[in-house]
Design a protein around this nucleic acid. Structure first.
Length: 409
DNA sequence: CATTGACCTGAGAAG
DNA sequence: GTTCCCAGGTCAATG
């Protein structure tokens, strides 16, 4: 049955500092990559299945990739109409390397960007070292749109589950890798049918079923052909322009953001996610609960005019970060976002477990505080570990934030 | 404009 | 074993 063609492992020259697969693929940008065989990241991309490996100890300067084509694929090269990307070796008949360079957005020099952000922002400098190699992906805009519509009031694990169900039900099968079926991502047209909403509800999408169904109709039937893609940033990456950026971002970004808001289930945060990770607008800064917490904890938001996360506060936060970090503010933002994820909390605690336990034990002697606050205290301890050099003012912000959380319980 | 409550669901913590 | 809470927000109705 297995007549699919599978290639051998090939090398993609990119260092660990420029791309960390583990961090980039687990930080909630894309919801489809699966970790199989312990260390293989696998996902379908443009009609093929791609597997990736990265071994920091063995070879920190390459990512290994392997392609699995469906059996009926003509494997015609698109390179004749491509834009001058030449592959030197025998893989000229395969555009996968070019696809990977595009998907992982490898042109910007991430090491230089980290240095620049660290120079401009002490807080970034403090938190970034444990989260190097976080890149903003250039995903398919439609996939990003669907994924982030699913993200509202939801968690990454369930979003991944929902997107997976979506592909299984509506995306064409490409083939199996490690006994797992891989389907392409469904097109807007395939989600525009009249039964889609009820089907999606059965698949566990909840109230987002209607958002997706209606958005699919709008994109596939009411908007002109290629409307979504036309919102993409086409300017070449230019690292010298970072200081000339207006606080609100470029006109093209603002227009794209505004147009996306007209869709169902798309508010400012989802629109920014699509702008950043699907349309290539690097200055886009999605402000979610994590970023809002970060803005309060480390950048003095949360009081005065910006006490709550209103639309005005949302814009002010984005403007602040664009001013601070420049044209790729969204890239820097995602580094701090990753550092805030529970998924990666272990990185912040590895050398401090004993201290944490002592601290918790001391707290429990109060008697009244009980277990309900134990988790909070532990998380607080995690935070403190990485910010011990911070000013007292900032530490006070941490404590007050924590206190609020405790009261809510 | 800012505030408020409803909205699906399933994994994990709490009791 | 059950109950409860929460997670990358958005929308619609009110001050």
């Amino acid at each position: 049955m297995n007549s699919i063609r599978t290639g051998e492992w090939q090398k993609l020259a990119v260092s660990l500092a420029e791309l960390s697969l583990d961090t980039t693929l687990r930080c909630g940008q894309s919801f489809r990559w699966k970790k199989l065989n312990e260390d293989e990241w696998t996902c379908s991309l443009r009609g093929r299945v791609i597997s990736l490996k990265q071994d920091p100890k063995q070879d920190p300067n390459h990512v290994l990739y392997k392609v699995t084509w469906p059996s009926n694929s003509p494997l015609t090269k698109l390179s004749s109409s491509g834009k001058g990307v030449k592959v030197e070796d025998d893989s000229t008949k395969d555009d996968t390397e070019a696809l990977l360079r595009h998907y992982f957005n490898l042109e910007p020099n991430l090491t230089e960007l980290y240095e620049r952000w660290s120079m401009a922002d002490p807080n970034f400098k403090k938190r970034a070292p444990k989260f190097t190699g976080v890149r903003i992906l250039k995903q398919d805009a439609w996939e990003a749109l669907v994924g982030f519509i699913c993200s509202s009031n939801n968690n990454i694990a369930r979003i991944s589950q929902m997107v997976n169900n979506l592909c299984l039900s509506y995306g064409p099968l490409i083939g199996h890798v490690h006994d797992q079926p891989f389907h392409d991502f469904p097109t807007p047209e395939s989600l525009a049918g009249p039964e889609v909403e009820s089907q999606l509800r059965k698949l566990g999408f909840g109230y987002r079923a209607k958002y997706l169904a209606r958005t699919a109709v709008i994109v596939s039937k009411e908007k002109p052909e290629n409307w979504l893609e036309s919102l993409s940033n086409t300017e070449p990456f230019d690292e010298t322009e970072w200081k000339t950026l207006k606080p609100g971002g470029r006109p093209g970004y603002r227009k794209s953001h505004e147009e996306l808001l007209a869709l169902q289930g798309v508010g400012p945060k989802v629109a920014d996610c699509v702008c950043l990770m699907g349309l290539g607008w690097g200055e886009s800064v999605p402000v979610d609960t994590h970023v809002w917490q970060i803005a309060q904890r480390d950048y003095k938001f949360g009081k005065g005019k910006h006490k709550s996360l209103t639309k005005a506060t949302y814009d002010a936060i984005g403007n602040h970060f664009r001013l601070l970090w420049g044209e790729e503010a969204g890239w820097a933002h995602s580094v701090l976002f990753a550092a805030d994820l529970r998924t990666f909390a272990i990185r912040l605690t590895e050398k401090t477990e004993v201290q944490e336990e002592l601290q918790i034990k001391a707290e429990s002697e109060d008697g009244v505080i009980v277990q309900a606050t134990t988790v909070v205290k532990k998380r607080e301890a995690i935070r403190e570990e990485t910010i011990k050099e911070e000013t007292t003012d900032d530490l006070n912000v941490v404590f007050s934030t924590t206190a609020k959380r405790t009261r809510r319980r």
